[in-house]
Design a protein around this nucleic acid. Structure first.
Length: 588
RNA sequence: GGAGCCGUGGUGUAGUUGGUUAACACGCCGGCCUGUCACGCCGGAGAUCGCGAGUUCGAGUCUCGUCGGUUCCGCCA
């Protein structure tokens, strides 16, 4: 028979009734009634029921149909007919019709798969990853990967329309000391020297601005040799964007338009701009996070001023050391058991707090292990400031301001989840702006870039770069969606003098800076336009839009948390010959 | 680097205070079955309980180690 298809399985609907079709696909399921066989045929577009009815079939074809098993690849030629009265399947888009087979070709037999494709979601992840090509046959992953494609195309459509050029940058580049651990690649031609895979195309895209391309984007593959998480893979994709002759507002307004465009096209949800902006300081103060989830309340409050001169040593000593007393009202959590509260306290300590203070608000009193150390006025002031009502559980952390805030910020997320306060199906966007340019790294004993070393300082803070680096704000912005950092960017430094100051603030000597970044700073001397950009975590964006909770689900061939590919079994040793050629010796 | 959880036929699970035939569902194989769609009915095969030590008369069950998966902390400019 001529086996090449005329239609996709998933599109065979009543409009095709009466037509002769040829379909190709996989046997999703067969129902052999003895005298009659039904087969659900599957392709990317869906399922269609095939009927093998011996009354209008040759014996040979029926006998062949009896041989069919799950995941056989077949071609079926037959007649599309409306199903008999009362036999429609409302669960299938193709459920009003069926294809009465006349001819069948088995294109490929299949072993019984290690798991049922339809139930793959429940199977142990290591088995699914080993047979990723089978898991990918499932409806869930087919949809996720198709959605990924859609998001990528919509991003391209939008950027193309706004005069961006898609330009590729090299994957074999130079290792730089700042930032994440690089994957390094040895060079046969230059033994003892190594390329690095890019953590992002940062300097290349800036150089493209200096080259005059004005607007660049790339679906950039990026690599970081750091430990994995549900939302972190060692290789991932960014929507990488850079623009010339722009200020912060230009980048933010265009990029939020892009994200809103994608959400509208992909999810059919219209969100009206502009996306709210919040300073970094406000985010920490109100939410204890630089990427606040604004889909619910439970905001933090400050209690420091209420507890000046408190007789309770934890409070007084924290305040005298310049720390803060911060609080969070765990509404309706007053009925938490001792064990549940201890769990919260354990978490708080795990996150670096010295302890967690709690107060259960009751009708006529406040129940708390520290109640006896506080005056009635102090207790009432705390309850008042936190708007505690009977049944509430007040959580308090006394510590260095940022640490106390962040610990409570994490508890806030924990409680919101436990209390079911997080609404489904909502996409809350927020720009976080005015980031600190530098953060002091105790371990390294120096300042490190909060964003990256090419971020421009806010103009009026420029002078502080040498006198008080920790207080310099950056022309940086992060786009946050539902408490997930979707992307971040900044206006860049575009002149040599400022870039040199930045490297100096990072504790780099001029010699080191010249050795690492000399080519880059030299480029600034040949006419560099003011420029800035942003990079979005593409996998995370797709994860959020597909309602998944791991980026593994939206990457065709992901790695495990230990960075292995279980399908191809990578990484793997290489031959002694390969190592020889690279002049690499293994240590024991 | 650290912590938690999981690992029992092909798959998902159950397995009591440690006690001798390791159970159930799905899948698979065979038989019957002409309107099923999670088809049904009957029968069958299939597991040294991730691996290695230890405790014990006896370990799927307890202990330690180890491997794998996963979640989180550190890390990820």
């Amino acid at each position: 028979m001529e086996w090449r298809r005329t239609h996709f399985c998933g599109v065979v609907t009543e409009e095709l009734a009466g037509q002769e079709v040829t379909l190709n696909g996989w046997v999703n399921r067969r129902r052999d009634l003895g005298g009659m066989i039904f087969v659900d045929l599957r392709d990317r577009f869906g399922l269609i029921q095939i009927v093998f009815d011996p009354s209008n079939l040759s014996e040979e074809v029926f006998a062949q149909a009896e041989q069919l098993r799950s995941e056989f690849v077949i071609a079926v030629q037959g007649l599309v007919q409306l199903r008999p009265e009362g036999q429609a399947n409302p669960h299938l888009p193709t459920g009003k019709v069926e294809v009465h087979a006349r001819n069948l070709t088995i294109l490929s037999q299949a072993k019984t798969p290690p798991f049922e494709i339809e139930r793959a979601e429940a199977v142990d992840e290591s088995l699914r990853l080993k047979y990723r090509y089978l898991h990918l046959r499932s409806r869930e992953l087919q949809d996720a990967i198709a959605l990924r494609h859609g998001v990528m195309q919509e991003a391209r459509n939008f950027l193309n329309k706004h005069h961006f050029l898609e330009i590729e940058t090299p994957l074999l580049i130079r290792s730089t000391p700042e930032g994440a651990r690089d994957f390094i690649v040895p060079s046969r031609v230059h033994p003892g020297e190594f390329y690095a895979l890019p953590q992002s195309p940062q300097m290349f895209k800036q150089l493209l601005m200096i080259s005059g391309f004005d607007r660049y984007y790339q679906m950039a593959r990026c690599f970081r040799d750091e430990d994995l998480r549900a939302d972190r893979q060692p290789e991932f994709t960014q929507i990488d964007v850079e623009m010339s002759f722009v200020e912060r507002e230009d980048v933010m307004s265009l990029m939020e338009e892009m994200i809103l465009h994608i959400i509208e096209k992909i999810k059919g949800i219209t969100i009206n701009g502009p996306v709210p902006r919040m300073t970094y300081d406000e985010a920490i103060r109100r939410f204890g996070s630089d990427k606040p989830d604004t889909r619910f309340g439970l905001e933090l409050v400050d209690l420091t001023d209420l507890l000046q001169g408190s007789g309770f040593r934890v409070f007084s000593s924290t305040i005298s050391q310049g720390g803060a007393i911060r609080g969070l009202n765990g509404e309706t959590c007053g009925n938490f058991t001792r064990r549940e509260i201890d769990e919260l306290a354990d978490k708080a300590e795990q996150w670096g707090a010295k302890g967690l203070i709690w107060m259960a608000v009751e009708e006529d009193k406040v129940r708390s292990p520290i109640a006896k150390f506080l005056t009635e006025e102090e207790l009432q002031a705390i309850v008042g400031r936190l708007q505690g009502k009977p049944g509430d559980l007040l959580l308090i952390v006394a510590d260095e301001y940022k640490l106390a805030s962040e610990v409570l910020g994490r508890l806030r997320l924990l409680l919101a989840e436990r209390l079911g306060l997080i609404p489904e199906g909502r996409y809350d966007l927020l720009w976080v702006v005015d980031w600190p340019l530098l953060e002091y790294d105790e371990e390294a004993g120096r300042y490190v870039a909060a964003h990256h070393p090419f971020t421009a300082p806010v103009d009026e803070d420029l002078a502080l770069l040498e006198s008080d680096p920790g207080r310099v704000r950056a022309k940086a912005y992060d786009l946050v969606m539902n408490g997930v950092e979707l992307g971040g960017g900044s206006i860049r430094i575009a002149n040599r003098a400022t870039q040199e100051k930045m490297f100096k603030a990072l504790g780099m000597s001029m010699e080191e800076a010249a050795a690492q970044f000399g080519y880059f700073m030299e480029a600034f001397e040949y006419g560099a336009p003011p420029h800035g950009g942003i990079a979005f975590g593409f996998d995370r964006l797709v994860m959020l839009l597909s309602g998944r909770d791991s980026i593994r689900d939206v990457i065709a061939f992901p790695k495990t948390v230990s960075a292995r590919d279980l399908m191809i079994d990578a990484p793997a040793p290489v031959s002694a010959g390969q190592l020889n050629e690279l002049k690499i010796k293994m240590q024991d």
